[in-house]
Design a binder for these strands. Structure first.
Lengths: 201, 201
DNA sequence: CGGGAATGGATACAGTCGTATCCTATCAAG
DNA sequence: CTTGATAGGATACGACTGTATCCATTCCCG
């Protein structure tokens, strides 16, 4: 066995095992031993690379945020030159679970969100991405308004808050099987139509 | 000690203790012994009135649904004669946490919702109320459309789905402290204005 | 080439969990 | 007054939890 080990890779491996458990069986099924089994290592290894279970949990949340961030950028890049409406469609469309992996991540995200309601340490880590998203979109919408792309009587921050809440609520209903991904996308498109006007691209 | 005991009252007492724990410390903090301590009884009593922890959990979810149902009717009654818009304002306003008790219940509801994602038994119990709400509001909106209260090109079910998702998403952000109750109410009112027209009561 | 750090296997510890069992009061009915 | 069901206190069980410790490798560096 080598003495030199890529610690970051090891930690990533364990974090991914953690997220796999959390997204399929819930955060309550996450234990040190379960992570070890899922990652195919011994319990000692999990202890070796993470001082605490708490540290492990926070690492999982950070990884989830990074994945979401990466997905948004990937979507935006695939769409090429983006109109203001295109930016919103990309971001909100990325919040919705649209393939198996993003569905699993949304499950894990929901589990973390709930845990954060009664665990301040997780709340601090978990709120950074949503807040950043809201600020980013608000800035974009304010610029779009100054460019005349949306009506001047709209309040950008209120609009963005509503759209993000809508996307989150729709994610919930898609995860619980109440609605399909397509139905949720239609509802978002419908609201974007109302905001940007029906003939905006 | 009497031999005759009101079993329903006993079960309600225990269920309320369970919900108090779930809403303040999360479902993960709910154990048979914690419920006993919270209710001021012995562990044996909890076992005596509920065969399982699972039965206890399902009872908590049922009670949460009943509370929500009761609150909606109370609000609607307080508003007296209700316009179509009034019905929507009452229902959606009741979904949002608006006082301490409803905030606690929303916390517990969120915890249950997340648990239901990986626990089919809970999902069966938990989805009945949301589905009933959606059907009820869709019927109301369809009637309002036939009466000419909303534009004929709107799809009632899509509108209702969007509004319920919005209310749920706003509830999440209020619970996590991202937004105040007033800000959330404003966003809902704003969307109701767009649906019913700004001069509807 | 030998020693000390890096890595991880094996095991132990004190708690807590859900559940089961044993046993004792209490009270309604015969 | 006695009997038997009801109600609940006390305690035990095995499984699982997070964490700590002991010990054997392996490999880099002097």
């Amino acid at each position: 066995m080598p003495r030199q080990v890529d610690h970051d890779a090891r930690r990533r491996q364990l974090t991914e095992a953690l997220l796999r458990i959390a997204s399929t069986r819930g955060l309550r099924a996450v234990s040190m031993r379960e992570i070890a089994a899922e990652a195919g290592v011994s319990l000692r290894v999990v202890q070796y690379y993470f001082t605490n279970k708490q540290a492990l949990l926070e690492s999982g949340l950070t990884e989830l945020g990074a994945r979401m961030d990466h997905r948004v950028k990937q979507r935006a890049a695939a769409a090429g030159e983006l109109t203001p409406r295109g930016v919103f469609a990309a971001v909100l469309g990325t919040i919705l679970p649209f393939d198996e992996q993003s569905t699993l991540d949304s499950m894990a995200w929901t589990a973390y969100y709930t845990a954060a309601l009664t665990d301040p340490a997780l709340a601090a880590v978990g709120l950074t991405l949503p807040n950043a998203l809201e600020n980013f979109l608000t800035a974009r919408l304010t610029a779009a308004q100054q460019a005349g792309d949306i009506a001047p009587d709209r309040d950008p921050r209120t609009e963005v808050a509503g759209l993000l809440a809508l996307a989150n609520g729709l994610t919930s209903s898609v995860l619980s099987g109440q609605r399909s991904h397509e139905a949720a996308t239609k509802i978002i498109d419908y609201h974007l139509d109302r905001l940007f006007g029906p003939d905006a691209v």
